[in-house]
Design a protein around this nucleic acid. Structure first.
Lengths: 204, 204
DNA sequence: CCACATACTAAGCGGTTGCTTAGGCCCTAA
DNA sequence: TTAGGGCCTAAGCAACCGCTTAGTATGTGG
């Protein structure tokens, strides 16, 4: 199996809930194109061709090209948030390690989706942008509470809680920029490395 | 003075060596537009209008829109590299702290230039891309040597030198994504915060 | 005075863009 | 059998894209 085919299979997994199948194929094609060339450099004809349909078919399932971006961004942000809220550990240090591992490795494994999520925000219409920013606030506050809990329990030594939260999120998010599948590092190994680095940063 | 005017003044500083003045104004207008809306979303008419000239004037000073991007990317990468090579400290810990402070605060203060440098690489033609990638390799190896020197001197405890180097660079670069002038944090305070966080990460 | 280079603009060309219109195929159910 | 709705295509529209061409104003050297 080629790397490209593996990439598309991962996208299939991310968008498994989207129906009908033609609409899902369109979303997957759009996500791959937006991630690879950027939203503005991608044409509706590119997306339709990749999905194996005519240019007009895009508008059967989506209002506009921007609507396609919004669906990718909205669902992608939800998946990213799930990586943090899905953590079951309760002890502050183990909890933070698990969250960073899940969040950073998601940005590697699903880096195509993650790139659209993290780097195409400004192409959204104001009302869509606002909705996504709200999800981002949830992500930020989830991590900040983890830092605060660790400080309260005496497990972390952090002079600036908001600054540390910012750095933790920033480190994980930037994985989507530099990660390349088939390279030296796997999503798994990135998660392990980053969990360790973050705990050091937090003075655990 | 407005924030927008301050932003343009900072761009003036970055591009001070570019002549003639009309070519410099064009570069500044292009850098601001590319940073704000992205390369592909920016039209040559936008750039010319911002520079106070006609659309055709772009082609007096530059071969193409992509040439404009290349000049911004090339000079911007040089400035970023200067932030690291300009460090005078010799003791490994102080040297790393100074480098991280300079590099991260540059990404905040000159975040418009930095955004083009870090997020518009893929829009470059292959030969231009290759030239810029070479500069990025220099940046990476400069930081890696600082990490290695610290490990050799027993000042850092790092299980994975390349992984740590990656994380340090990643943290600083991502500042260009989230930084907003007029926000809670100044370039100066980001530099101080990040120097501390990085030293902890490296086990100093 | 003229010859000439530099720096610019007005106009527009060929191609591409997001999106719409009009119509056709196919499945389902009365 | 046929009416209707969901899903899709062929064709194309108006607007916009990067870039070129032809021509103009200005300054300088001889």
């Amino acid at each position: 199996m080629t790397t490209a085919a593996q990439e598309f299979e991962l996208l299939e997994h991310t968008w498994r809930d989207v129906t009908p199948p033609a609409a899902r194929r369109m979303l997957i094609a759009a996500a791959a194109a937006f991630a690879g060339r950027g939203y503005h450099a991608t044409t509706t004809r590119d997306i339709a061709a990749q999905a194996g349909m005519s240019p007009a078919a895009v508008y059967i399932h989506y209002r506009s090209k921007e609507d396609l971006l919004f669906q990718i961004s909205r669902i992608g942000h939800r998946r990213a948030l799930e990586m943090l809220t899905g953590v079951t550990e309760t002890e502050p240090v183990a909890r933070m390690a698990a969250a960073v591992k899940a969040f950073s490795s998601w940005h590697a494994e699903f880096h195509l989706t993650a790139r659209v999520v993290q780097y195409e925000l400004t192409a959204l219409k104001p009302e869509h942008h606002a909705e996504v920013v709200e999800l981002r606030r949830e992500i930020e506050s989830t991590v900040r509470e983890m830092v605060e809990d660790g400080v309260a329990a005496g497990a972390f030594k952090v002079p600036d809680v908001r600054g540390a939260t910012l750095a933790v999120l920033s480190l994980c998010i930037d994985v989507a920029r530099w990660y390349q599948p088939g390279g030296r590092r796997t999503p798994e190994s990135i998660g392990t490395l980053y969990a360790d680095l973050v705990l050091r940063m937090l003075g655990a």
